[in-house]
Computed example of a mutant assay.
Amino acid sequence: MTFPAAGSRAPDFSTQNQYGEPVRLSDYAGRRDVVLVFYPYAFSQVCTSELAALRDRPSLLAAAEFLAVSCDPLFTLRAYSDAQALPFSLLTDFWPHGAIASAYGVFDPARGCALRGTFVIDRTGTIRWSVVNPLPEPRNLDDYAEALAKLGSDLR
């Protein structure tokens, strides 16, 4: 698998969030940094602990627009968001199945899900930092905070 490298343009996409609202990555250009968080499955143990930990870090969430992406259908994402009280958008990559994850090199076709990939994208649409973990291995939120802090200092 090939992941887009730091310094490259983030692949644009258009999808819906858990409320059925349209979301396009390029709509954040010039307005807000984005943290794109791919996760395998709603309601799974590691994904739930990762997204709950993110939910519980409001100062981190304030630093950028967090968009969590999975191949789950829209209505599953709505139930998951409601059950976990997640304050950020959950984006569906259900159809065409895995198209967004594929564009970022994090789609696992054998499992039909996204890998644990995270991409920090600046306001110009450039990928500034990324990490991809194996499915059972949660990501470290402190790494997100460090990447966002560095992004802030790079823009001064």
Rank of each mutant, 00 (worst) to 15 (best):
Y39M: 05
Y39A: 04
Y41Q: 12
A42C: 07
S44C: 03
S44D: 06
Q45R: 13
V46D: 02
C47R: 05
C47A: 11
C47E: 06
C47G: 09
E50W: 06
E50N: 07
A52L: 14
A52D: 14
A53F: 04
L54K: 03
D56K: 02
D56L: 04
D56Q: 07
R57D: 13
S59H: 13
S59P: 00
E65V: 09
E65N: 07
E65A: 15
L67R: 02
L67E: 02
L67V: 11
A68D: 02
S70F: 07
D72I: 08
D72T: 07
F75W: 13
T76L: 11
T76A: 13
T76D: 10
L77D: 00
L77V: 01
L77A: 01
A79V: 08
D82P: 00
Q84R: 14
A85T: 11
P87K: 02
P87R: 03
S89R: 14
S89D: 15
T92G: 05
D93L: 05
D93Q: 06
F94E: 06
W95E: 14
W95G: 01
W95H: 14
H97Q: 14
A101E: 09
A103H: 01
Y104C: 10
G105E: 09
V106C: 10
P109C: 07
A110L: 12
R111Y: 08
C113Y: 07
A114P: 04
L115F: 09
R116I: 05
G117Q: 07
G117C: 04
T118P: 00
T118I: 15
F119S: 03
V120T: 10
V120N: 00
I121K: 04
I121S: 05
D122C: 07
D122I: 04
R123N: 04
T124V: 00
G125M: 04
T126K: 11
T126N: 01
I127H: 00
W129G: 00
V132M: 09
V132D: 07
N133C: 11
P134G: 01
P134K: 04
L135F: 14
P136G: 05
R139M: 13
R139A: 12
N140C: 11
L141F: 12
L141D: 11
L141K: 08
D143S: 15
D143N: 13
Y144T: 01
E146G: 00
A147M: 12
A147Q: 12
L148A: 09
L148P: 10
A149T: 15
A149S: 15
